[in-house]
């Protein structure tokens, strides 16, 4: 069997990096790394999403 080429890791977008940063701040990044974003509770999802859109809005105000 030929060696399967390892899939190139997905390039992280700015939003991905922001999501990771927020997850780390909330102390849930280890869980995400281990079990994926889907493992988060709805509360945790909501917190990440809420903080993320606030930061994006604030960033736009500054520029």
């Amino acid at each position: 069997m030929g060696q399967t080429r390892s899939k190139k890791p997905k390039e992280l977008t700015e939003r991905d990096l922001l999501k990771i940063e927020i997850a780390k701040e909330l102390g849930i990044w280890e869980q995400v790394e281990k079990d994926g974003w889907e493992s988060l509770s709805n509360e945790a999802c909501g917190r990440v999403g809420g903080i993320m859109s606030k930061r994006l809005r604030d960033a736009k105000k500054i520029t």
């Binding site: 709805n42 909501g46 993320m52």
Partner: peptide, 11 residues
């Protein structure tokens, strides 16, 4: 997920 920068959930 990528294009929206969204978050997966179960609602």
């Amino acid at each position: 997920l990528d294009i929206t920068g969204g978050i997966g959930c179960r609602v």
